[in-house]
Amino acid sequence: MDVKQFYDAIGGNYQRALETMMNDEFVKRMLLKFLNSSSYSDLLEAFRNKDIKAIFNVTHMLKGVAGNLSLTPLQLEAAAVCEIARNAFEYTAELDIKTENLISVYELINSNLKQLC
């Protein structure tokens, strides 16, 4: 799978990714760095612990990096969870469901990232 195919598979914005990062090689390097980062495990841990603050912190970072990598579905989901967590006084069902959805989207992206050659 090449970079364009990856973006097509995950519903991301390949064109925008190229405008920001200039070439496939750099895009790929950043995507693989993202794959190897601790964001996913941090999100899982925050979800497991039902830690609102941790969820906020992870999703806040996630929406930024996903946005810069033009991983549009992940960006949108992370942004949604971030807003709920920002204003939450307690751990709600909505937060729970949204975070679970976010994790699913993240897993899909990761599985496609692993296919990047």
């Binding site: 200039m22 760095k33 970072m61 930024g64 990598l69």
Partner: peptide, 12 residues
């Protein structure tokens, strides 16, 4: 920025 990847992109 603690976001390493965004920092890398910005650096580039």
């Amino acid at each position: 920025d603690d976001d390493v990847i965004s920092g890398d992109i910005l650096s580039s």
